[in-house]
């Protein structure tokens, strides 16, 4: 299945690829920047299947092969992504938005904080527009794949964010991919349980708490997501 990422506003509709194809979509978006083919890209997708997604370095963890088997048997195959962080479940309850930009970074290798704010602040503004009064960026104790720049509602994690930076070919510019994964449906428990199952399978004592997460449906039960999502993409494009 081939899906083309686009900087064209007409392409900002929610796509429904498999997790694997969605991850490839992110990669293709970044690659187009790296190849100098585009300056900006934005894509939104929600998986048609499900998988537990993590950076490839987790392969080094002792017990990983067994954990992979256990998760596969549970119906959650493990896939790898190109951004950093720790395991994140992907399912139809999750909407992913990837923002890719060509950036001039001076002598730094990246500007991570800037990248997270570039993704997260329009997201918070979008939530405010939808009537969420207490959306902000920050870490959430007890949340899986926690970082300093989750999009939070009332201190609970709604969107997990991650990044990847690569060099633009033949240039000193860098290409940034900032990715946000927002739980829109289902209950936090359903996804947290998957991550905790992985934790148990690799014999990692850390466990995560459903109370640290929130889904968009919990915050905005009557929201028409299909109608609202383009406004998020527009904000991200125009920020």
């Amino acid at each position: 299945m081939t899906i083309s990422p686009t900087a064209d506003k007409a392409g900002w509709t929610l796509q429904r690829p498999t997790v694997e194809a969605g991850l490839a979509l992110d990669e293709a978006l970044l690659e187009s920047i790296c190849q100098g083919e585009s300056w900006f890209g934005l894509v939104a997708w929600s998986p048609s299947d499900r998988a537990l997604v993590m950076p490839r370095r987790h392969e080094r963890v002792a017990g990983f092969p067994e954990a992979r088997r256990i998760l596969r048997d549970m119906g959650w195959p493990i896939l790898f992504r190109a951004t950093g962080g720790t395991p994140v479940p992907q399912s139809s309850a999750v909407v992913n938005v990837a923002l890719a930009l060509r950036c001039q970074v001076g002598s730094s290798a990246a500007h991570l904080e800037w990248g997270y704010r570039r993704l997260g602040e329009p997201w918070c503004e979008w939530l405010a527009e939808l009537g969420v009064a207490d959306a902000d960026l920050g870490s959430v104790a007890g949340a899986y794949c926690d970082g300093r720049f989750n999009v939070r509602i009332a201190g609970r994690k709604l969107v997990g964010t991650a990044q990847r930076w690569r060099r633009v070919r033949g240039s000193r510019d860098m290409a940034m991919l900032a990715h946000g994964a927002m739980q829109v449906g289902d209950t936090p428990e359903s996804l947290v349980d998957v991550v905790n199952a992985y934790q148990a399978a690799v014999d990692d004592p850390q466990r995560f708490e459903a109370a640290s997460h929130i889904s968009l449906r919990q915050a905005l039960p009557d929201l028409d997501l299909d109608a609202a999502l383009p406004k998020l993409l527009e904000r991200l494009a125009n920020a």
């Binding site: 950076p55 370095r57 190109a82 951004t83 950093g84 962080g85 290798a109 990246a110 991570l112 990248g115 997270y116 794949c145 970082g147 300093r148 964010t161 991650a162 990044q163 990847r164 930076w165 690569r166 060099r167």
Partner: peptide
């Protein structure tokens, strides 16, 4: 390199 949930390529 990876930090802060970001993977960064060093050229």
């Amino acid at each position: 390199v990876m930090t802060d949930k970001a993977l960064v390529e060093i050229p």
